[in-house]
Nucleic acid binder design. Structure first.
Lengths: 204, 204
DNA sequence: TTGATAAACTTAACAGTGTTAAGTTAACTT
DNA sequence: AAGTTAACTTAACACTGTTAAGTTTATCAA
């Protein structure tokens, strides 16, 4: 059965080639201008061929974005391991989230604005392994540390995690979609937002 | 010149009819399913007719959304007038922003996710009158009040306004685009977010 | 080596989209 | 009544994602 395995590997390689070309096109042309036909042309294949490797456009785009999310998770795991004050870890993690979003606007758009229901309900999200789930859990663990060491006021870690997440998400999304906003320098605003939020939950 | 005025009025009325039908279709079918051709069919006209009244699709959709934004501004002005503690006013205003966004997801989507650069740069935004500008200024004024009465720490009102805005924006956007998120009850999260943020900027 | 089988890929089409140039009909003015 | 202008339509362009059906190519057994 050596030949079948070889074919499988070749198929896997071609899949990779599609992903890589798509990512390039996607970054070059941006979210709105990307199309399956353009991708096919760039690869020298007919558009239909791609459908033999990916269910549909969303499936392909999502695969690309999950690969980026994987890199983020790695960085986040790195921060968690550091021997730092949990609050400082949280600040780092939140600022990293913002930085990654701003540096990869197209990926971020796909990750949050196509396929509205890919992860399903909360239970489905938590049961099925995914990078998004692991990222969420990593964030939540840092928040938990802040609460357990009495640096944060007593509250539900899940709620606080979600609060932090939507806030930083808002900054990223606003910056990506309204290129002239915010008017305050983005780094300054990011710091103000993160510090403000943290202070809001810190014991004083 | 009575006849010309009459025609102008009729034209204005027809414009209104388009807006009203479009809004209905838009709310019924949602952001993704709306199309100029469907609208034209619903009105019993050819698609091209609409282009005699609106420059393009974005122009039409934006008109609809600005009308909703106008209602929001009215409510916001109402809150400002109330004889309340400025911090309480700010809390009310922010919660109202969230409420309006969640109750009008389709309008909110158009307002923030089509036509990325309609308002131009900061100077352009501040010079040209628009509902968006007035809303921003109303928010900023409440923030200013909080700082001037020494309830908030000393900081640039513009920066704090933007911080608050992007945070609440994030909650709305996340709720709209990911129907299964957040998992924490939306009202609870809205309160936690707003209270947390305010506490982060309050003197203690 | 030949014929059958299966995989890989393409053609052509469907059903849409926003938008515009050119043409037609209807209304008003002189 | 003839000319002008405004209102509206037809037909087309240039796209989009997606699929059913057909063709080519490669692998395998006889």
């Amino acid at each position: 059965m050596g030949i079948k395995e070889k074919r499988d590997r070749q198929k896997e390689e071609f899949r990779r080639e599609i992903i890589d070309t798509a990512r390039k096109l996607f970054i070059e042309e941006g979210y709105e201008a990307f199309s399956m036909r353009k991708l096919a042309q760039k690869m020298g294949f007919s558009p239909t061929t791609i459908y033999l490797y990916f269910k549909d456009k969303d499936d392909l785009l999502f695969t690309i974005c999950e690969e980026l999310a994987e890199q983020c998770l790695l960085e986040l795991t790195e921060i968690r391991k550091q021997n730092l004050d949990p609050v400082k870890k949280l600040r780092k993690a939140l600022l990293f989230h913002i930085k990654t979003g701003l540096e990869n606007p197209d990926h971020y758009k796909v990750l949050f604005f196509v396929h509205p229901d890919i992860y399903g309900s909360q239970t489905e999200f938590m049961q099925r392994p995914s990078i998004a789930r692991d990222t969420h859990l990593a964030f939540k663990d840092i928040v938990k540390e802040c609460i357990d060491t009495n640096q944060f006021i007593k509250a539900d870690p899940e709620t606080i995690t979600e609060t932090f997440f939507v806030a930083t998400h808002g900054l990223i999304v606003m910056s990506i979609f309204k290129s002239n906003y915010p008017w305050t320098d983005r780094d300054t605003l990011a710091k103000k937002l993160v510090n403000g939020l943290i202070r809001g939950y810190q014991r004083c």
